[in-house]
Design a protein around this nucleic acid. Structure first.
Lengths: 345, 345
DNA sequence: TTGAAAGCGCTAACAG
DNA sequence: CTGTTAGCGCTTTCAA
């Protein structure tokens, strides 16, 4: 019986796979030729190519990415960095969609995604060290709160990066991909008004990515000044904040007949509070959300909301990042939103 | 003006950081000594250690993981594989918690998490190739549906791996970490009975991880035979399935006064359907969920549910996997659940 | 079109 | 305790 301590090491040693040399030998060519077929097959005769491919098949060869990276300085991986000081973002249903879509888009190009959480200053430094150490070729950054130092640090380090949503730091230091938050907010506000609602309130979260724009869109339609009493601001896009904000709004403007919440999560909280207050939705108070996330479908009643094309945002982020890595032009992109009418308004 | 194509390459070349030799030179020691401090600092004099650390600081040195991996055969990364043929799992709030907690637990050990989605047979093969190619040292597997081929393939390949939840394949081919689903279901069922409910129905999902056990727990308390009319089975843990199942259950057993749903998502669907049917919760029908996920707090009314210690599950998965990688004993672990009483029952 | 050879940056013996 | 050295598996000149 083998000592347990040694089992892993033993198996690991056994498991060492075929190298480029094994393939070369079997194919009867040099190591250089095998490398050439690995990298596009240019300047290789048909015969050699055939022989090498067969040999690779036979041996079950896989490139050793470490060896390759050591010389090419490319890791074939990108970092997906999530900045979530309040541990909140991870619960956002939008985030899941984004992460899944990015992973998929990258997998199609055979690129791997390594997930990193910026939960503290310490972690941020770990991430920066890691990224600067060329462990990843670039970074997809999901940053929601204003003034995230990571954005400027990444930019300063010259690391290829793209942000989701307009970065909440001064200057356009990094390219970003975002939905057209402002126009989306206009769409919703206009719709609410067109439905005949006289007093349309808003639950806004100006410090969260997109929050400014959503508030501006609302103001674009309803005017900037006269609405103080109809707007309540919260700190994040959470359900709980929605509950509290709705409570406050009802207190300030008991006569309101519609409310636009800056996210579906917020809207779902508003729904709960409205029911508790004995107001029917949409008959007494209409409710509009933003995001068209899963909860929009699952809340009761289902939410009328603004759809953000998140799958597209993800694909575009990946596209912009890869271009940037290749040294091509990488411009910010703004994607159109769409009104989705359900039962809440 | 530089041609755009070359910009990336140029910057990349510039960015090449300090190597172990630079540090060695600056510290006035050999490359071997630097390597030693990098790997635990054993057999190094206090003076050398000090000098090296200072030199590392000064140069801003970071190890080149590729070079290291090339010789150690360890990638310092683990794969987090999510098998989700129906794209459903990613929307499960439990999954987010699991992913976040695993990422954090690994980050604490300075290990990176690479995320992989098994969305198709093709993707599964890509994952297997990748894993066999030693790109990761081990795999954390989240597999919910029965008969996932990845489980057996991973086991056959001899890759260190641990599954979340009891794997739905015959034989214990891989160690796993799970909450005590069966006992949790008993806790809930008992509670419902103790509250005086006479006809306790169940919405079960026997094909999903933990689903069998949750049904068994219910049957442990209420008896196996007599309850056919009170149990409805669904295909997954989704909200929509909950709506449909509740509808069906109400049709089959209009007199039921409580229902235990095998997940919070399912329970939230049941809540919607009950309201539509004009039944008050908990007065007419009490509802119990399972998971204590975010929705349990956010649904209306908040759900009485069974808490799964997911953060703990995640930490234990990481622990079991790392042990396995080190060649130590790696045993399956079952974690206790807890009844959380809110307003729905 | 191909082979030979020189590293990439690091770890792990091995002598000292 | 420390320096020296031999690779790890691959890409990439450079000649041929």
């Amino acid at each position: 019986m083998v000592h347990p301590k040694s089992r892993g090491a033993a198996r690991r040693a056994m498991r060492r796979g075929p190298t480029i040399d094994d393939v070369a030998e079997l194919a009867g060519v040099s190591r250089g030729t095998v490398s050439r077929v690995l990298n596009g097959g240019h300047y290789v005769s048909a015969a050699s190519l055939e022989a090498v491919q067969q040999a690779m098949e036979q041996t079950g060869y896989t490139v050793n990415q470490s060896a390759r990276s050591l010389v090419t300085k490319q890791s074939n991986a990108i970092g997906f960095v999530l900045s979530e000081p309040q541990e909140r973002l991870f619960e956002d249903p939008n985030f899941s969609v984004l992460l899944r879509s990015c992973t998929q888009a990258l997998a199609e190009q055979d690129i791997n995604l390594v997930l990193m959480l910026e939960t503290s200053d310490e972690e941020r430094n770990r991430i920066l060290r890691y990224v600067r150490g060329e462990h990843v070729d670039g970074v997809l950054l999901i940053s929601t709160h204003s003034g995230d130092p990571l954005i400027t640090e990444l930019a300063r380090a010259g690391v290829p990066a793209v942000v989701c949503g307009r970065p909440l730091v001064p200057g356009d230091v990094l390219p970003y991909v975002a939905a057209d938050d402002r126009e989306g907010a206009r769409q919703m506000t206009r719709y609410l008004v067109e439905q005949g609602h006289q007093r349309v309130g808003m639950i806004s979260a100006p410090q969260i990515a997109g929050g400014q724009e959503r508030l501006q869109g609302y103001q674009d339609v309803l005017g900037r000044k006269a609405l103080k009493r109809l707007v309540v601001s919260v700190d994040d896009y959470s359900h709980e904040a929605g509950v509290r904000a709705m409570h406050e709004l009802l207190a300030k403007s008991p006569d309101l007949d519609a409310v636009f919440a800056a996210s579906d999560l917020l809207a779902s909280g508003a729904l709960v509070e409205l029911r508790r207050a004995g107001r029917r939705v949409p008959d007494d108070v209409a409710v509009g959300g933003f995001d068209d996330s899963r909860i929009a479908r699952e809340s009761d009643p289902p939410l009328t909301t603004i759809r953000q094309p998140l799958e597209l945002v993800a694909r575009d982020m990946v596209d912009v990042l890869l271009r940037q890595i290749r040294g091509e032009e990488a411009a910010t992109r703004i994607l159109p939103t769409e009104l989705v009418i359900r039962e809440s308004a």
